[in-house]
Protein backbone atom coordinates (compact mmCIF):
# COMPACT_ATOMS: atom_id res chain seq x y z
CA UNK A 1 0.00 0.00 0.00
CA UNK A 2 1.39 3.38 -1.00
CA UNK A 3 0.59 6.13 1.51
CA UNK A 4 -1.10 9.12 -0.09
CA UNK A 5 -0.29 11.51 2.73
CA UNK A 6 2.79 12.02 4.85
CA UNK A 7 3.10 9.97 8.01
CA UNK A 8 3.00 12.24 11.06
CA UNK A 9 4.51 11.06 14.32
CA UNK A 10 4.19 12.85 17.63
CA UNK A 11 6.77 12.16 20.31
CA UNK A 12 4.72 12.43 23.49
CA UNK A 13 7.86 12.41 25.62
CA UNK A 14 8.57 15.81 24.10
CA UNK A 15 5.09 17.10 23.35
CA UNK A 16 3.71 17.26 26.89
CA UNK A 17 1.50 20.38 27.02
CA UNK A 18 -0.02 20.80 23.55
CA UNK A 19 -3.12 22.69 24.73
CA UNK A 20 -0.89 25.28 26.34
CA UNK A 21 1.52 25.47 23.39
CA UNK A 22 -1.05 25.42 20.56
CA UNK A 23 1.50 26.23 17.85
CA UNK A 24 1.01 23.30 15.45
CA UNK A 25 -2.75 23.41 16.00
CA UNK A 26 -2.80 27.07 15.01
CA UNK A 27 -0.37 26.99 12.09
CA UNK A 28 -1.72 24.02 10.13
CA UNK A 29 -3.66 25.33 7.10
CA UNK A 30 -6.10 22.37 6.83
CA UNK A 31 -6.28 21.92 10.65
CA UNK A 32 -4.96 18.37 10.67
CA UNK A 33 -4.32 18.25 14.42
CA UNK A 34 -6.67 17.81 17.35
CA UNK A 35 -6.05 18.14 21.06
CA UNK A 36 -8.08 16.70 23.89
CA UNK A 37 -7.90 16.22 27.64
CA UNK A 38 -6.52 12.78 28.46
CA UNK A 39 -9.19 12.42 31.12
CA UNK A 40 -12.17 14.51 32.13
CA UNK A 41 -12.69 14.48 35.88
CA UNK A 42 -15.91 15.56 37.55
CA UNK A 43 -15.57 18.93 39.27
CA UNK A 44 -12.09 19.58 37.89
CA UNK A 45 -10.86 21.94 35.20
CA UNK A 46 -7.82 20.31 33.62
CA UNK A 47 -4.54 22.16 34.15
CA UNK A 48 -3.21 22.81 30.66
CA UNK A 49 0.36 23.19 31.96
CA UNK A 50 0.41 19.75 33.60
CA UNK A 51 2.50 17.38 31.44
CA UNK A 52 0.36 14.70 29.85
CA UNK A 53 -2.97 16.28 30.81
CA UNK A 54 -3.72 16.97 27.15
CA UNK A 55 -2.87 14.81 24.17
CA UNK A 56 -2.16 15.88 20.61
CA UNK A 57 -3.13 13.73 17.62
CA UNK A 58 -2.86 14.09 13.83
CA UNK A 59 -6.50 13.22 13.26
CA UNK A 60 -7.24 14.66 9.81
CA UNK A 61 -4.12 13.26 8.22
CA UNK A 62 -5.73 12.83 4.82
CA UNK A 63 -5.51 16.63 4.51
CA UNK A 64 -1.78 16.82 5.25
CA UNK A 65 0.20 18.16 2.30
CA UNK A 66 3.63 17.84 3.89
CA UNK A 67 4.17 21.62 4.06
CA UNK A 68 6.25 21.15 7.25
CA UNK A 69 4.90 24.30 8.91
CA UNK A 70 4.08 22.31 12.09
CA UNK A 71 7.61 20.89 12.26
CA UNK A 72 9.01 24.39 11.91
CA UNK A 73 6.95 25.88 14.76
CA UNK A 74 7.27 23.00 17.23
CA UNK A 75 9.45 24.34 20.07
CA UNK A 76 10.42 20.91 21.37
CA UNK A 77 11.05 19.02 18.14
CA UNK A 78 8.29 16.52 18.84
CA UNK A 79 6.89 16.29 15.33
CA UNK A 80 8.17 14.37 12.35
CA UNK A 81 6.44 14.41 8.99
CA UNK A 82 7.69 11.68 6.68
CA UNK A 83 6.82 12.03 2.99
CA UNK A 84 5.04 9.08 1.35
CA UNK A 85 8.04 8.24 -0.84
CA UNK A 86 10.32 8.08 2.23
CA UNK A 87 7.92 5.78 4.04
CA UNK A 88 7.66 3.44 1.08
CA UNK A 89 11.43 3.16 0.61
Amino acid sequence: MIPVNPVITIDRERCTTPFDCKRCLRVCPPAVFAVHAAKIVRGVETDRTEPGAYLLAAVYRDKCTGCMKCVEVCPVGALTVAMPQEVRA
Binding site: M1, I2, P3, V4, N5, A34, V35, H36, A37, A38, K39, I40, R42, L55, A57, V59, Y60, R61, D62, C64
Partner: peptide, 25 residues
Protein backbone atom coordinates in the same frame (compact mmCIF):
# COMPACT_ATOMS: atom_id res chain seq x y z
CA UNK B 1 -21.45 8.83 31.05
CA UNK B 2 -18.59 11.25 31.58
CA UNK B 3 -17.55 13.68 28.85
CA UNK B 4 -14.42 12.47 27.17
CA UNK B 5 -13.49 15.68 25.42
CA UNK B 6 -12.70 14.07 22.09
CA UNK B 7 -10.74 11.09 23.39
CA UNK B 8 -13.42 8.79 22.02
CA UNK B 9 -12.92 10.38 18.62
CA UNK B 10 -9.42 9.03 18.37
CA UNK B 11 -10.54 5.46 18.79
CA UNK B 12 -13.56 6.02 16.57
CA UNK B 13 -14.30 4.41 13.27
CA UNK B 14 -13.89 7.74 11.54
CA UNK B 15 -10.33 8.10 12.75
CA UNK B 16 -9.50 4.60 11.53
CA UNK B 17 -11.14 5.48 8.21
CA UNK B 18 -9.13 8.67 7.81
CA UNK B 19 -5.87 6.92 8.62
CA UNK B 20 -6.72 4.21 6.06
CA UNK B 21 -7.47 6.87 3.45
CA UNK B 22 -4.18 8.66 4.17
CA UNK B 23 -2.38 5.33 3.85
CA UNK B 24 -3.92 4.75 0.43
CA UNK B 25 -6.38 2.06 1.53
Amino acid sequence: TPFTGGAEGLASGLNRAIQAKADGD
